[in-house]
Nucleic acid binder design. Structure first.
Length: 555
RNA sequence: AGUUCUAUGGUGUAAAGGUAGCACAACUGAUUUUGGUUCAGUUAGUCUUGGUUCGAAUCCAGGUAGAACUACCA
């Protein structure tokens, strides 16, 4: 029995097409972002789908920048998008820009005019909206609807030549002002914009609308399966209309449900707002659902691809638990992350029976999940940093770490027994004292002592320091987009907390941006791009599963 | 109100007329020098009402619920 995964509905369509010999068995998809923002995890789903389908069916996938609106688009976004797609592990077969087709698209418009299927309209935008009708009321014909072909040709030429100001005239398709689908009520297909385009410069002052560019671009590239999200479903009749009237290659559009993740927002408009209003520190802020944000936070391409595969592809609206993404991240990081020790909230532990000034070097495995992971040396002395919450003055039952009289193991080192502690005048514990059992050394333990708890630690004599940034969900509610009022009212103001001085083991000093670490018992961490040789900065990628805090919450 | 789309455990997603399965989450337990990992197990689902059929998540009809559409954005 083969491990065959069931097909999603798009794969079913493709396999049916393959069987029927449609397009000579060719599968050609495309990923068509508009370069007006950074890519987010929702785009990642689409990228994995489109490029994944091409790979699975031995086909091709293009990257096409849908750049028909010069006022919002920028090469900065083009660069970031290419970078993100490559980082995710995909490479396009062809790179295109809709703007490369402007000449052809213009000729298509002329063709439509000649066929009597398009006309130049002098109405204002308000007039066009007013005569469009309503969802349950038909629209009315524009007074300019019956201009002659010759007149339309002349006017459209003048539009292109820059004779008119923005908004003075538009070119509309002549379809049906009473159509139940609003998009077919003589949609605008060309508008005047005297704007500088990031690629074509000042060559054009008229630009095609999405509906007059997308399907034709697919057709020009001989795309067989044009996959987009559900909100474009109403556009499909128009997509088909253009291809049909123009008599060009019949690309076909299929729609799937976009990804929604809880506790975040996924619209470029909202994300741009967060960036512009400095609610976050740029598009690649580690709290952002952008690919660049996740990369900076320490997520891996493997984990994002696995996530995309796990959530599946269907046509019903969904709201995926962010926990599933985090699961995929942990799952991959568990296999590849180097284990290291770091103490985020330090308190001093003094071993009273370990000779002052003595040090020894212990061996610590780099990754228990990887047989070939090797070991590293770590130093040990009588003064260590341990985590503040690994000690309790009045420990409850089932607490496995330190409290006076309790024993616990120092990972990779010895078992210690807590003998006392010191408080300052404010009642805060400042030092913890313990004795160690020399014969309990890790790997050669002959002490016979059994302990349930193990703690991480860092030798105070050799420790380095680092800044650590911890992240929480960006929003306080599951779905800020559907909440009453402004989505920004639901921002979690505690989504970033910074630890300015944590103690880390010396091996971490050489970390690079490509490294992934597990700080033992805490979580997964990656170097931040702000990090320098003198000031090391780590991001917490995601925490370890924590069944102790769960236990505590139960009370 | 019109049109279009959708409806399966808490969340996702399978089952193409024949045992409702998988993943995450939750909960037990075992293992563990990370309260991590791993392993074993438990809880929990076909929107509703009819119809067709020996048999319906699946086919048909009617409800109900949710979403999308009325930008010179994509």
């Amino acid at each position: 029995m083969s491990e065959e995964r069931s097909l999603n509905f798009i794969e079913e369509i493709i396999e049916k097409d393959l069987e029927a010999g449609t397009h000579e068995g060719r599968v050609h998809t495309r990923f068509p972002p508009e370069p007006n923002g950074y890519l987010h995890i929702g785009h990642a789903k689409s990228i994995c789908l489109n490029f994944g389908l091409a790979k699975k069916y031995n086909g091709k996938c293009n990257l096409r920048f849908d750049d028909t609106n010069p006022v919002t688009e920028d090469t900065e976004y083009v660069e970031s998008i290419m970078n993100d797609v490559r980082w995710l592990g995909f490479d396009w077969d062809e790179l295109h820009y809709t703007s490369d087709y402007f000449d052809q698209l213009h000729d298509f418009a002329v063709d439509l005019i000649k066929k009597g299927l398009a006309y130049v309209d002098d109405s204002t935008s308000e007039e066009i909206a007013a005569t469009k009708g309503n969802i349950d009321r038909p629209g009315t014909n524009s007074p300019f609807r019956d201009r002659t072909v010759a007149e339309n040709l002349q006017l459209f030429t003048e539009m292109r030549e820059g004779k008119y100001a923005d908004g003075e005239k538009v070119l509309r398709a002549k379809i049906d002002m009473a159509h139940p689908n609003m998009l077919l009520r003589d949609p605008i297909i060309y508008r005047i914009k005297h704007a500088h385009h990031h690629r074509t410069g000042d060559k054009w002052c008229i630009y095609p609308m999405y509906d007059f560019a997308h399907g034709q671009s697919d057709s020009i590239e001989k795309i067989t399966h044009s996959i987009c999200t559900l909100e474009f479903i109403h556009h499909r009749p128009l997509y088909d209309w253009c291809i049909d009237k123009l008599g060009i290659f019949p690309s076909h559009q299929y729609e799937f449900a976009r990804l929604n993740l809880n506790y975040t927002v996924m619209s470029k408009r909202k994300l741009l707002q967060l960036v512009n209003e400095k609610q976050v520190n740029g598009w690649n802020d580690p709290r952002m659902p952008t690919i660049s944000g996740m990369r900076r936070r320490g997520y891996t391409p493997e984990s994002i691809r696995k996530f995309a595969e796990t959530i599946g592809v269907a046509k019903r609206e969904n709201l995926i638990d962010i926990g599933l993404l985090e699961f995929c991240v942990r799952e991959h990081l568990n296999k590849v992350a180097l284990r290291r020790m770091a103490v985020l909230d330090p308190i001093k532990l003094i071993i009273t029976n370990y000779p002052e000034g003595q040090t020894e070097t212990l061996s610590a495995e780099n990754n228990p999940e990887d047989e070939n992971g090797g070991h590293r040396p770590i130093s040990f002395s009588n003064t260590l940093w341990i985590e503040r919450d690994d000690f309790m003055e009045n420990p409850p039952a089932k607490y496995f770490r330190l409290g006076v009289g309790l024993k616990s193991r120092l990972k990779h080192a010895y078992i210690v027994e807590c003998t006392g502690f010191k408080k300052d005048e404010n009642g805060n514990v400042t030092e913890i004292y313990c004795t160690y059992f020399p014969e309990s050394k890790s790997g050669s333990d002959t002490s016979g002592i059994k302990v349930k708890g193990t703690m991480h630690w860092v030798d105070a004599n050799t420790a380095e320091t680092a800044e650590i940034r911890l992240y929480d969900r960006l929003f306080k509610v599951e779905n800020p987009a559907t909440e009453e009022g402004d989505f920004k009212d639901y921002i979690n103001t505690d989504s970033l907390s910074t630890i300015s001085k944590a103690y880390i083991e010396p091996a971490l000093k050489d970390a690079t941006l490509a490294d992934r670490f597990q700080f033992l018992r805490i979580g997964y961490f990656a170097l931040d791009t702000d990090s320098t040789a003198d000031h090391i900065v780590f991001n917490k990628t995601v925490g370890l599963k924590d069944s102790w805090s769960k236990e505590q919450k139960k009370g």
